[in-house]
């Protein structure tokens, strides 16, 4: 296959970039070696590519970057750094951090007993803050200890009451028994009957007597059961 000058020229870049397949490469070379027009053309383009690749990057002037920043974002340079820094403070992240720090300081000062109504510069002295914070800490510890102790007593009482509610026998045991009242002159350690009980006992005795009269064969056993 023999190529024409037009074909060779059209595929010149592919040849120089190494994109021709072996058959095309062979045809290309065959034509170029025999063509008086294409030989210098290929040589000059190859030389040009060498020159293009040899072109070094040109460094832009230093002030160009500053000029671009000024034209786009508006302010650059050391003069305006303060304002750029101030704008940076408006970011949500910084605001959250600042609020957190302020809240922490307020909490610590309040905990150390700082008087917000009558603030004094002396109260902000580290030694004063430490002393007050130490005192507040001890008071808080004592209060919490007492609170825990009180809670323990309350729970103990509650648990005892629950246990006694569930077990009446136990309740009798757990209720403190008062010492029996002893009437003056009584030494037999017996409970005296109340008037109501006494009346009831009398009533039962009367009935038993009636029954004994009606049924004499029961008299002996009924008499034995008579309430004292």
């Amino acid at each position: 296959m023999t190529w024409t000058c037009e074909q060779t020229e059209a595929r010149l870049s592919d040849y120089l970039d190494g994109l021709l397949d072996p058959a095309e490469w062979s045809a290309f070379n065959q034509h170029v070696n025999a063509c008086a027009i294409c030989t210098p053309l290929v040589a000059s383009v190859a030389h040009l590519l060498g020159g293009l690749y040899a072109l070094e990057q040109v460094e832009p002037p230093p002030q160009l970057e500053t000029a671009i920043l000024r034209a786009t974002v508006g302010v650059v340079g050391t003069k305006h750094d303060f304002w750029a820094w101030l704008r940076g403070l408006q970011s949500p992240r910084f605001v959250y951090s600042a609020v957190s720090v302020a809240a922490t300081i307020v909490l610590l000062l309040t905990a150390s007993g700082f008087n917000w109504r009558k603030p004094k510069l002396a109260d902000l002295a580290p030694a004063t803050v430490y002393r007050k914070a130490n005192g507040q800490l001890h008071v808080a510890y004592a209060r919490s200890t007492k609170f825990v102790s009180d809670l323990r007593v309350v729970y103990e009482i509650q648990s005892r009451m629950n246990e006694s509610d569930q077990n009446p026998a136990m309740r009798q045991e757990t209720i403190p028994q008062s010492s029996p009242k002893k009437e003056p002159g009584r030494t037999d350690n017996t409970n005296p009957s109340t008037p109501k009980q006494q009346n009831r006992a009398n009533d039962i005795s009367r009935r038993l007597e009636v029954l004994a009269c009606e049924f004499p064969f029961l008299s002996s056993s009924l008499v034995d059961r008579r309430v004292p």
């Binding site: 059209a10 595929r11 120089l16 053309l41 383009v45 030389h47 040009l48 590519l49």
Partner: peptide
């Protein structure tokens, strides 16, 4: 095509 023609044209200018 443009790259190829550009290279050839550039070589001719040179």
């Amino acid at each position: 095509s443009r790259i190829n023609r550009g290279r050839i044209e550039l070589a001719r200018i040179l």
